[in-house]
Amino acid sequence: MVKDLSVSLSGLSLKNPVIPASGTFGFGVELSGSFDLNVLGGISLKGTTQEPRFGNPTPRIAECESGMINSVGLQNPGIEALVHEKVPALRKCYGGIVIANISGFSVEEYKTCCLLADRCEGIDLIEVNVSCPNVHNGGMAFGTDPASAAAVTRAVREVCRKPVFIKLSPNVTDIVSIARACEDAGADGLTLVNTFLGMRIDINRRKPVLANKMGGFSGRAVFPLALRMVWQVARSCRIPVMGCGGVASAEQVIEMMMAGATAVQVGAENLRNPFACPEIISSLPSVMDRLGIHSLKEIIGTV
């Protein structure tokens, strides 16, 4: 029997729920020569700020058991280049859902960037990153306090016509209270989770492996942590959730959806296997068949 992989996210129709997560898929065009991007449910673009950023010094990446730590530090060409160059370039080879991921160092910056992203024809949804662990005086600071997260949400919601999702940090005591604050402030949905703040030390050199000392831990190891947060938030909020964290297989996509995710982002796995998303998508129908699932929509939040 033909399987229905499609999902509906804030009025947008996705052919399947699988979306490469922000920061693990560049601006999409980098992968356009390797496989047909149109198989994807959507693409979340690399985090973008108002001004261009070089990012952190190297090394920016460290190997871990079943995962990795990165401290890229929001290297990006700035919002003007995103809307005038990166998105139009992607649109030449990709017709699916495009998610702009926006970061900032002040509420004003979030607002300015989101407004430009909102007015960009090639962008369908805006994901507001209040959870980057790799930049100082911003990023994660907005996402670790309900009032700050709500303030950013409210400011952005005011200037956007497109769906606004807030990407939450797992580095908090109570993610549900922050999720609820975003929902109350007008968020259309939530993406969770961003990376877990982590660190490695090179015991030969007696120094941190990363030039920035700390970074964001992601990869297969974080899947159960992310899943738990998705489950907690999805049952406490009415707005849709994009689940993200350690997903590496079609089975885990289904697990995330049963926990309450409407769409599922694949992150670090893309760095191990640049073909992870198309491989997961192509194996979804057989896994659904084995589990007796006809349509993915019917399993969302069923656990």
Partner: peptide, 11 residues
């Protein structure tokens, strides 16, 4: 990281 130009780790 990726080796293929999309993770921006080796800048």
């Amino acid at each position: 990281g990726c080796g293929a130009g999309f993770c921006y780790c080796c800048t």
